[in-house]
Design a binder for these strands. Structure first.
Lengths: 328, 328
DNA sequence: CTGTTAGCGCTTTCAG
DNA sequence: CTGAAAGCGCTAACAG
């Protein structure tokens, strides 16, 4: 018997029926102590591990959750996955992971793959806000939670950081510390976070329009885009407000190459507070969002949907982190 | 009929038997064009997606690969996962991901979970070199490839970077540029990479013992460990050779706080070449290892094992990357 | 070429 | 409390 042991083998050794074995192993129905013990002993001896595929087929529940993200290598997304995984494992779920590599058509394809694997639920960080593939998800009739985007359809749960108020907090701090001219180097404005951060900046500028001046540049959430946008700036303002930390790193590097003193000549700020933000020289003033928590909350929402059919949308608080890259 | 359509539904609509439907959908047996078309049309209309759980049970093959790593949030590991995933998907595999969170007992537990899900193969980055749980993997009789560690048992494939010769290359460069006193700030010496890098450093020191002096400190692969080890240094040498880039970042930060000029007063080197190594000030001289490629090669090895039962162990080349943190 | 049928390993009625 | 038997959705003999 070199094949992996099954419930049948246990039954034979313990001298009981397979039904009894199943009952003992699942512990949801009463079985006499004697039989119970015999079964457990046999299972232990064989090193039995249940076949979740067979169980999944029978029960219509696989204990797997599909995870669809743009890029697993990006620490933001992987932190989300980590947060979610730690939570989901407590409930016996394992993650089926797919990354769309930034391609929209992949999202669709992978959605089918995941569905095909009969995942019990789905978690996704969409490539773009209001992604049309979300409509398809609905039809799949599998519980979903969308991450880093807020969905208004009430049959889908979602979770995101409060990018808008985070950026407002940051701007308020800069205004309070007598910054009056600004440049906003935006990340991709098609994303939810890009939209919200940009909008917050604009709203503050409009509100304070008598005392401030500013310019806005659009780019992507990358180091090199930060460098490019900096070069296009018409003038170096009091503060350069970057769409995220990566952009800020590019800006920092380029400014130093041009012999600007930070923060004496110009303040630079980021958004996200990634691991390296505290290691730059000077360390970066930024807005922290907790990606790990985002994954955790997302998992929690999914569990609630799975167990009680409750849906919800949650906005996570952000925190202003003041470091040396801004004069205060 | 709100339930998800199955092969039966297609058969009914197309007016054929379920066997015919299966044959058409799998395309491995000849079916007359007429029936074929009717089946395809029905499948399309229903938006049929095969139930991989049922198929898996029947065929004894799930098209899933289990992935077990210490920490998904760590960019090294997630790059490996990404490389592997991109390759595996071409072959129709999806990844079941688990991270052990650095705990050895979790590795064992998760191994069972993965096994229970009847994965067709397993990829793992072990917490420690020569981890005992590798023995257990053998018994599972499922193809395995171990990553970032070289396994000598020939029934298991493995892949790692050539840490030893990478470190030697780096040391040779430092010697060639007239560095004569060294400090080696090691990462965890229980890991395969830690061992190899340390050994290479030692071997070079012994070989050049007449002209050099050095000290060795043991720590972990972290920013804060880098700072700590630097503080314990008895003297600042010509070159501080760090076990990886993270340690080097800590060292860089702390040295600058102490007003050392880099590389004029002291050279600092890393290992890995993470994304941020080119963004530090000065940018870091380091040894690049290609994690993405490591994942890809690992996937390739797994596919070979799966298809032809061929096993292999591969050592990946590393590349010396000279930047501003070392005087040359 | 096509249909009928027997399971894959497990859970869950349904009888006893 | 326990066993026999049905069946989850699909594939693969086996007949025709």
């Amino acid at each position: 018997m070199q094949k992996h042991p099954g419930i049948k083998d246990i039954a034979r050794i313990a001298g009981v029926s397979i039904a009894t074995v199943s009952r003992v192993l699942n512990g949801n129905s009463y079985v006499s102590p004697e039989l119970s013990e015999r079964v457990l002993k046999a299972a232990g001896k064989l090193g039995y591990q249940p076949n979740r595929i067979a169980r999944g087929l029978r029960k219509g529940k696989t204990n797997t959750i599909g995870f669809l993200i743009p890029d697993i290598e990006n620490p933001f997304f992987s932190a989300i996955v980590k947060g979610a995984e730690n939570f989901l494992r407590k409930y016996g779920y394992t993650i089926l992971l797919c990354s769309s590599a930034g391609k929209a058509e992949r999202e669709d394809e992978l959605l089918n793959v995941l569905y095909s694997h009969k995942v019990d639920g789905l978690m996704t960080v969409p490539l773009e806000s209001q992604n049309p593939y979300l409509e398809r998800i609905e039809k799949l009739s599998v519980p979903v939670v969308v991450i880093d985007d807020i969905i208004n359809q009430k049959n889908i749960s979602s979770v995101a950081s409060d990018n808008y108020s985070g950026m407002k907090k940051l701007m308020q701090y800069l205004l309070d510390t007598n910054h009056r001219s600004f440049a906003f180097l935006s990340g991709d404005p098609h994303t939810y976070s890009g939209k919200e951060r940009l909008q917050a900046f604009r709203d503050v500028m409009v509100q304070e329009k008598e005392k401030v001046e500013y310019e806005i540049l659009l780019g992507t959430y990358t180091f090199s885009s930060g460098i490019e946008m900096l070069r296009k700036l018409r003038k170096i303002p009091d503060a350069i407000v970057c769409g995220n930390d990566m952009i800020a790193f590019g800006v920092l590097t380029e400014l130093q190459k041009l012999h600007y003193k930070i923060p004496n000549d110009v303040s630079v700020t980021g958004f996200d507070d990634v691991l390296f933000s505290k290691m730059t020289n000077p360390p970066l003033t930024t807005v922290r969002q907790d990606y790990y928590m985002m994954g955790r909350v997302a998992a929690q929402l999914l569990i609630e949907d799975l167990n009680y059919k409750k849906r919800n949308s949650i906005l996570l608080k952000t925190e202003l982190v003041i470091r040396g890259s801004s004069r205060g």
